[in-house]
Amino acid sequence: MIDRPVRIALQLQPQHLDYKAIRRTAAEAEDLGVDVIFNWDHFYPLSGDPVGLHFECWTMLGAWAEATARVEIGALVTCNSYRNPELLADMARTVDHISDGRLILGIGSGWFEKDYQEYGYEFGTAGGRLDDLAAALPRIESRLGKLNPPPTRKIPVLIGGGGERKTLRLVARHADIWHGFGDPDTVARKVEILHRHCAEVGRDPAEIELSTGVRGNPAELGGRLRELGVSLFTVGVGGPDPDLGPLRSWLAWRDAENGRTGG
Rank of each mutant, 00 (worst) to 15 (best):
G162W: 02
P45R: 04
T186A: 13
G145S: 15
E113G: 03
P5W: 12
F233T: 01
G223N: 13
R4K: 05
L251F: 06
S249Q: 13
L137M: 09
R189T: 01
M60L: 14
G161D: 07
E66W: 01
W178F: 00
P50A: 05
L53G: 08
L170D: 05
M91H: 04
H195L: 02
L76P: 11
R260Q: 12
F112W: 11
R23T: 00
E118R: 14
D185K: 13
R102D: 10
T212H: 11
D31V: 07
E30P: 15
C57T: 03
F55I: 14
R248L: 04
W58F: 15
D35W: 09
S211F: 06
T212V: 14
R224A: 13
T186Y: 02
R83A: 04
A206M: 04
A134I: 02
V77P: 05
V230M: 06
H195N: 12
S99N: 14
S81G: 08
K20F: 07
R254L: 01
K154G: 10
R226L: 09
L244E: 09
K166P: 00
L76C: 13
L12H: 06
P150A: 14
G222Q: 08
R143H: 11
L228W: 09
A135G: 04
L144K: 11
D49N: 15
P218C: 09
P218H: 12
G108I: 09
R23K: 01
S249D: 15
Q117T: 13
M91G: 06
Q117C: 05
I8F: 10
K20R: 15
L232W: 07
A92T: 06
H195V: 01
P45Y: 10
D176G: 10
R70V: 07
E122I: 02
A136F: 02
T167V: 12
K166L: 15
H16I: 06
W111N: 07
L251D: 12
R83N: 06
A134L: 04
R83G: 06
R169P: 00
G222S: 09
W178N: 08
A136E: 10
D255K: 05
E86P: 00
T125L: 10
